[in-house]
Design a protein around this nucleic acid. Structure first.
Lengths: 215, 215
DNA sequence: GGTCTTCAGTGACTAGTATCACAGAGGGGT
DNA sequence: ACCCCTCTGTGATACTAGTCACTGAAGACC
């Protein structure tokens, strides 16, 4: 493993004790992922715990007819909680994960991440914290689908997107519609309304977010 | 603790090793919960891990306007995954849990369940399995809300209800509407349709399920 | 500059669900 | 038996979101 990567890991996971970092450096592999590449597919067997070193992943659910909706984003320093759980039993993934930007992921063989739970306090805490954080994000997503209209969901979606990748939302209306499991025309109309309030400005292929709390 | 309770615990949690069972017996308390009683409230601090010994709990989400929807049921032998996660950091609950029938829960002080993770393999496995199982159930619920119409969601709801408490569904249309975050009239109409296919028979205050796969 | 493709905007229509208003049915208590 | 309360059924109506059909605009490529 290269020096620069060691430093990157150290920086992203400062909470790990030195001996654990050494183990990670020694036994895990780093994989470069291109933009748009699928890191995990529904139905795939999982043999590694996935940590995100750089870039941005989106984790989403897909049904049999190809509909999808976004569950949450993973940022550098996060782990895919599902990969940790499935790992324990060599089970299949229930979700999709795709790189939003090019990214680097750390792959840790299941049997090691399993052992580390007992051996490294910081690893154990990290795993528990990951579960918890993802569970909560999932609950938020669930809330917004269950209780809110599409207009509020769109707002929630934009806010989250701004948080992970800035005020220039480089997405077509079509892509947004897909992630909210809606249709382009409807999203277009809702965006137009948002523009009229001054919360955003629309351009071709990107949306400039001004102030979402205006609404 | 009474003899009968010891036996009940043994029976419900046969996967635990003897020494762990002894610890549970020694340090946890058992609480009787009446039908309809809230075991856990949104915003409440959690100081114990909750295991279900007998009865049935429903775990659901509630928004600020009092709307709710069902996440999943807990049966004897299950644990409240959320209580395990929050436990680790003395955090607040994000969910509601209510007894559907009268029930007995085992309350394990957080610091102990925490210690046991490292000490007892069977406990550790149990906790991981619980997380995973709940996560998956939550995903199923999410799917049904995101991708399905109310008719299918109702079907899914009934199936799940039958699984945990039999073919005599003792619920008013109003209660069902509440748990699906819908309205009584709509549920009545959909149930009527189901009755016409022969899948169920409607009575006052209860629904007799015949064959839900008919639909 | 012209052609092609993708993206965005818009009106008309439809389907599903929620809401309102009301009527009737079932059962419990007195 | 009667009253009362809760539960259920049903029509009318409104609203949200999805679908269809089409137009125009922006850029990409030749």
């Amino acid at each position: 493993m290269e020096i620069s990567q060691k430093e990157a890991i150290l920086k992203r996971f400062p909470q790990f004790e030195q001996t654990l970092l050494d183990e990670i450096l020694a036994h895990s592999t780093i994989r470069q992922v291109e933009e748009g590449e699928e890191v995990m597919r529904t139905g795939q067997y999982i043999r590694s715990t996935v940590l995100l070193l750089s870039g941005l992943l989106k984790v989403y659910r897909e049904d049999d007819e190809g509909n999808e909706f976004l569950m949450y984003y993973l940022e550098p320093g996060n782990a895919c909680a599902l990969s940790m759980m499935c790992t324990a039993r060599n089970e299949q993934s229930q979700i999709m994960a795709k790189a939003v930007t090019e990214a680097e992921v750390i792959l840790i063989p299941s049997h090691l991440s399993e052992q580390w739970l007992a051996r490294y306090k910081s690893w154990h805490n990290f795993v528990i914290a990951s579960y918890r954080q993802r569970f909560e994000e999932l609950l938020q997503t669930l809330d917004s689908i269950a209780f809110k209209g599409l207009d509020e969901r769109l707002l929630f979606y934009l806010k989250r997107h701004v948080k992970v990748s800035g005020k220039e939302v480089r997405l077509s209306h079509q892509q947004i519609a897909l992630e909210l499991n809606s249709s382009r025309e409807v999203i277009s109309r809702l965006l137009k309304k948002l523009e009229q309030t001054g919360a955003i400005t629309l351009h071709r292929n990107y949306i400039e977010v001004r102030d979402l709390d205006l609404v």
